[in-house]
Design a protein around this nucleic acid. Structure first.
Length: 155
DNA sequence: GCCAACGTTGGC
DNA sequence: GCCAACGTTGGC
């Protein structure tokens, strides 16, 4: 089995932050409208671990850890006419968008900034630091995930 | 605000 | 299927 067990997901903290997740404990990771990101979410398994990345803030970086608790749930926002994620082409019988439910595990004491990540890893090791990467969900190889956790958990 | 790197749309 | 035009993400 070469299926990935670790992931990284981006969110803008002014929209949904690690503190919001900590307060909620669990959340449906809805609103993803990119097919590649959706397809990665479809590969997720229960108990996979997910790094929480704050984007579009200063500094951007990894701030916490989550766990997958449910997979392949229909994203309800696609049917919500008031939602910015409403998709008129999606039907109840054939929904286009689905998502996992994620559970809060921890907030790291210190953010691991994109700048630090870029200095510690090579672009071929992490999709995140490849130039122009716009994916909001991406797989992390197990050995890279272990290195990330080591760095994040010390101090 | 700029721009790189895609993704999406729609005419043909 | 091609491709031009346009939209989006997100770091800087």
């Amino acid at each position: 089995m070469t299926e990935p067990n670790y992931w990284l997901m981006k969110s803008e903290p002014n929209v949904y932050s690690i503190a919001n997740l900590q307060a909620e404990v669990e959340t449906l990771w809805d609103g993803i409208r990119n097919y590649q990101a959706r397809n990665y979410m479809r590969l997720m398994n229960i108990n996979d671990e997910v790094f929480f990345y704050h984007s579009n803030c200063k500094p951007p970086g990894i701030v916490g850890l989550m766990k997958v608790v449910e997979v392949n749930l229909v994203d309800p926002t696609q049917f919500d006419q008031k939602s910015k994620y409403h998709d008129p082409k999606s039907t109840k019988n054939n929904p286009r968008w689905d998502c996992p439910r994620l559970k809060y595990l921890k907030t790291y004491k210190k953010i691991l900034s994109l700048q630090e990540i870029s200095s510690l890893f090579k672009p071929e090791e992490l999709v995140l630091i490849r130039k122009g990467n716009r994916l909001s969900v991406m797989p992390i190889l197990a050995n890279i995930a272990e290195r990330l956790k080591c760095i994040l958990e010390k101090e």
